[in-house]
Design a protein around this nucleic acid. Structure first.
Lengths: 301, 301
DNA sequence: ACTCAAGTTCGTAAATTCCGAAGTGGCTCC
DNA sequence: GGAGCCACTTCGGAATTTACGAACTTGAGT
């Protein structure tokens, strides 16, 4: 087990250039300093310093150790100051986990509810659904937004609440979407080029089921991890794509899109997962309170 | 003064998610762990953990501290292993300091003398002349290559030796350098576009003196820190430029250049600066021994 | 050879890190 | 709504680490 005090003394010796100046700067006895560096060498299993004239020099191992030690203590030197800066600032931090399968457009709509909070510092962290759950349990995240509710795991005390259940609409570039296509929706999806989210997402599973129920075999020309990216490609003429009505607002920047159809019986859902007990983050409470403001929220269970 | 042991325990607690699992993993008593984190809070002046249910959670200050601690201990975890890897490898390290004013082309020619050493790991470090001197004195560098010799400072025991004194030739792109220009050199420098090293370099000082002595007022169209960069721009037609004969070999890759003139009475010099005493690096000795192999070495004092 | 400066060794004192034992308080289950 | 559990606390003294005073080598400069 590496002892950081030993490493620190070694670092000082290397930086100051010997066992004479370093202990003086550290206001300590020279023998102590030397003994501690000896300890470091014992734990590393290699000499880090070697005699050089009447001073000492770094060995190759020592050079490597010094390079790393330098990184470490560079960070360490600033740590206290940074903590002080963070603690004294009046910022409100909100750590949000975004599950991999979630639509970024929709996630933005949810977070927009609190985005006008003054002095807000938003920390977004994407990751696998399972990983985010454990980070939440360890109080490293305040809330997780996901396309699915958390399974009732008695070890992780988590509460899921459905924030929104937003019907899905289809859009496509104007030059692609004809009037007849709108009339024959959703059958028109069989000859129109279709873009879909990849299989990772919950929405994709719902879509596949939806296609199956209606006997529609869409002509898939592209699959995207990222819903925002998909909308860009669609607007450039690649094909038509589904988007939850909640995410539609964010599409305002994307001109030249025409609605192809609506499916009220298919919903993209977003769940807010949080710790069951423990005082909740004020902004999380605010999101839950304002959730009906998400205009497209589906009222039913 | 930040205690890294305290920080380490705090890091473990945050990573493992509480005071129950962390000490178990560290094989230590829980109270100890807690006490140490308390000490951290005392030195930082802020709480890093706060009660949350029957466990604890990070405060905002704690989150900031954890982020930094994570960086630190990530490095620390690998340090021992890296040192071991370096120490057990049969590589020969040579740490070279290149003074800012030196021509990279010439530096390469010098280092080429030992570049065929098997298992060589060359560490090149550029910097100000003064800074390199102190790094050399601290045995952080094995040798410094500079355009000037080290002033006799009794505190820093350094030895300078002139490695090469190479005459300077002028080249330019073929379409620019006419036969008449070659005939009227160096007066032709007054109408040809001339590229020069910036004032930082020793060569530039020598050049300016050389111009003055001959009453030549060159038509300067560009100044470059980096000699290699200068040669590239010159080859693309920007102008004519001076280069020491030693560096000419490296110009092989630069076709379309024609010699404009030679000045035997102007030399770019390169000095090797090393520690006076202390066993010298074998490769440094090799460089000094082979220095006459640098074909263009000027024999005189 | 002498001197000074840098590094080393040894033994003991001071500080810290550590654990056993005995509380608190929140949470869950019945 | 009370029993029980689990996570976190507090307190005191033991064990380990860290630190220093004093005396000893070794190398470089004069």
């Amino acid at each position: 087990m590496l002892n950081y005090r030993h490493l620190y003394y070694f670092w000082m010796v290397s930086k100051e250039g010997g066992f004479a100046p370093a202990p003086q700067r550290l206001v300590m006895a020279i023998q102590t300093n030397r003994a501690q560096v000896r300890e470091l060498e014992k734990t590393l299993g290699y000499q880090v310093l070697k005699p050089a004239g009447r001073s000492v020099a770094l060995t190759d191992a020592g050079k490597a150790a010094f390079a790393r030690a330098d990184e470490i203590f560079q960070i360490g030197q600033n740590l206290a100051e940074e903590v002080r800066a963070v603690a004294s600032k009046r910022v409100i931090r909100l750590s949000v986990g975004l599950s991999d399968g979630i639509s970024k457009l929709a996630a933005h709509s949810v977070l927009a509810l609190v985005l006008d909070t003054p002095d807000l510092k938003l920390l977004c962290h994407e990751g696998e659904f399972e990983q985010l759950q454990s980070e939440l349990a360890l109080h490293r995240l305040d809330i997780v937004l996901a396309g699915q509710s958390a399974p009732p795991n008695p070890n992780l005390r988590l509460n899921s609440e459905r924030l929104v259940s937003s019907p899905v609409d289809w859009y496509g570039p104007e030059k692609l979407v004809k009037k007849s296509d709108v009339g024959t929706f959703p059958q028109s999806l069989e000859h129109l080029p279709v873009l879909l989210p990849t299989g990772h997402s919950v929405l994709r599973s719902s879509l596949d089921r939806w296609f199956l129920e209606r006997g529609v075999k869409p002509h898939i020309v592209g699959e995207f991890e990222d819903s925002a990216l998909m909308s860009v490609f669609a607007a450039r003429g690649l094909g038509v794509f589904p988007v939850s009505r909640l995410g539609t607002d964010d599409l305002g920047l994307m001109p030249g899109l025409r609605m192809l159809g609506q499916c009220e019986d298919l919903h993209e859902e977003i769940y807010a997962i949080q710790n069951r007990r423990g005082q909740q983050h004020p902004l999380v409470q605010q999101i839950l309170a304002k959730r009906t403001d998400l205009g497209t929220t589906h009222p039913s269970a």
